[in-house]
Design a protein around this nucleic acid. Structure first.
Lengths: 364, 364
DNA sequence: ATAAGTGATGCACACGTGTGCATTAGTACC
DNA sequence: GGTACTAATGCACACGTGTGCATCACTTAT
């Protein structure tokens, strides 16, 4: 049975209120009393009960992090950033993986609501409006990261995928490529649209038309889908000379496929990834990709939630009928009402899977 | 301000105790009263407060997971297994990364203790005895995964690294290799020793002496260290024909180094990894490795903690002076006292980085 | 010497939930 | 019709912490 402030109070021969105040450094308590109490607290190995404090203060000192899959190394790095900031501000993290399963999502939202997390960071692309509302009903601030429906949320951090994709495409154009294709991941919603968008914008700016068969959306974002996607493109009667992949994982699958097909990279075929996951530097050859500042994105997301918490004085000052309107927060919270969206830019990382196109394509 | 059982009580015109019992399905309450109360609870969108319940029951319905680095894809997969089991049993997860930093470790232990997690799973190889004692003082069950000092803990799940390493080595021996070296990661403690051990056992069983310079321990487990390690071995006057790497990440670095050096894999040089992380199937060539059932390991760890929780009736039945002796749990907890160590076996995964040695080595 | 202040501490209640015990109403038995 | 029992519900306290208010001792000014 853990030590409580009452135990300390008994030992130090004061009331438990005095102990509570002393441990918080209240100026009401005499200096030496404070020191004496702190000393006995140390001796007894006292650790406050988060539950009790949370009950009283309506603050759990915990954030929820919802991710679609823990296995994905991409989320791992974002998590790292979140974790760092949270830990520095002495917040703990509740972590859960939705696995794209609505039922799990529901369970997660419920569990986190019961634990009264002070805020939530959602890194899952497919997060339903339904669950979101449940959080909002509790007045829990939500920050989304790279969400497909970022504009539905008031607070979000995301990466400028359009810009990144444009840079990637421009790089290929600069090398001299003209027949460039895009391999997407339809299950990632908005993200793939942004990247496709950037691709098309840049192709358009270069005065090049993209034939519809040069745009292919796979149903997932793993190496397998990359491999399958490559096969699709190679089977075309007029295959591309360069392929812009939705992400690094798919690009890795593509590289594997090219190797199996005996096609030299980058001399005969150029490939680009996106995200710059750790392994992209160690593919063979090393992958040209776009470096998303993942850790920074995570950190920024965490900072934003914490900022919202500071602004929002306490949960119980909100009026109970918060379900009015479609706004994320009930009116009356004052200055914090304006939405905040932060868009971060990454940088192009030219490695060795891109080069000028082969001098003699099969067709002129 | 969230809905409480008192709100429900008022609406349903009963006392809050009745509500509490009804929601728990107590047989004391009349069937139709239960239904009526459940209905109003649903209407009001009631969610119990984990804090309040935790305060009363001494159960937080949360587990702590301490990992050394979130970025490491290896831990990602273990986490997945843990998460699955936890979610299925409606436990939430507190997650934190120690980053091999003792100070952070201390902060994590404290935070988790304050939140009164019901149990802890430690996936960090380097976890100090100091912090462990703090958990034990609170009677928090600990399960360690692949820890360097597994025998210090009563409950642990680990993978049979010795066996795995033997299988890997035997595979190389069967292919005809004689000059086989081992590249370790000294910062992983026990794990690298086990793997080295298996390597040496199998070499010994084959009647082969391993020259001391064929054993090299790097100071980390990433691709960079792999690359550096390879350089060390290649600089030897009598380099090996095959290299057993501590893990896949290092092997990937080694592959890169070999490619840079223009050495053909597997024709001129064989390489093996360990762990079977997702990317090992997509290296060029695909990596021969040892498949650790990571997800299963995580799941087993979670199951073990939960089992311990079932056995351990409640925290407050323990006598307060739990600091007697060096045992993990004070005597008197009855049947749960015997330690539980579960060792899981993986399987060899032969891919394409291993082949019979080149017919004409530089020296006969 | 009394009033007015100030500094330090304790009392008592609250947060939301769970539970032993008392209370009430209804039923069956003699 | 009184007793003994069961079924259903309420009362009141507890968990550990935080805090407004009252209390007390002691100093200072009048």
């Amino acid at each position: 049975m853990p030590v409580t402030i009452k135990d300390i109070a008994k030992r130090a021969e004061v009331s438990h209120s005095t102990v509570s105040r002393a441990l918080h450094g209240s100026s009401l308590i005499a200096k030496n009393t404070v020191e004496r109490i702190r000393q006995t607290a140390r001796e007894l190995g006292y650790l406050p009960s988060a539950a009790a404090r949370s009950l009283k203060t309506n603050r759990s000192q915990a954030l929820g992090v919802i991710v679609s899959s823990v296995e994905d190394p991409f989320f791992g790095e974002i998590l790292q950033g979140i974790e760092e900031v949270a830990q520095k501000n002495s917040y703990s993290l509740f972590m859960a993986a939705s696995q794209h399963d609505p039922q799990r999502e529901q369970a997660i939202v419920q569990a986190m609501s019961e634990h009264r997390v002070d805020g939530v960071i959602i890194c899952s692309a497919s997060f339903k409006a339904e669950q979101r509302r449940q959080f909002l009903a509790y007045g829990v601030p939500i920050v989304v990261v790279n969400n497909q429906a970022a504009e539905d949320y008031r607070y979000s951090i995301y990466h400028d995928d359009v810009d990144g994709s444009r840079q990637i495409t421009r790089h290929l154009l600069d090398l001299g490529h003209r027949r460039i294709a895009y391999l997407g991941n339809s299950s990632s919603g908005r993200t793939t649209l942004d990247r496709l968008n950037g691709f098309q914008q840049e192709m358009g700016a270069a005065g090049l038309a993209v034939p519809p068969e040069y745009i292919h959306e796979a149903s997932g974002g793993g190496p397998e889908e990359g491999l399958a996607g490559l096969e699709y493109f190679l089977a075309l009667s007029y295959p591309p000379s360069a392929l812009v992949c939705f992400n690094d994982m798919m690009a890795i699958g593509v590289l594997k496929g090219l190797q199996q097909a005996g096609i030299q990279v980058p001399d005969e075929f150029s490939v680009t990834g996106f995200d710059n996951i750790v392994f992209s530097a160690f593919t063979n050859p090393p992958l040209t990709t776009f470096d998303q500042p993942k850790r920074f994105i995570g950190a920024e997301a965490a900072r934003l939630v914490l900022e919202l918490l500071d602004a929002q004085p306490s949960r119980d000052t909100l009026e109970p009928n918060a379900s009015s309107g479609n706004r994320d927060y009930p009116a009356g919270t004052g200055t914090t009402t304006q939405p905040r969206v932060r868009m971060l830019k990454g940088r192009l990382l030219v490695r060795e899977t891109t080069a000028k196109p082969a001098p003699s394509p099969r067709k002129p």
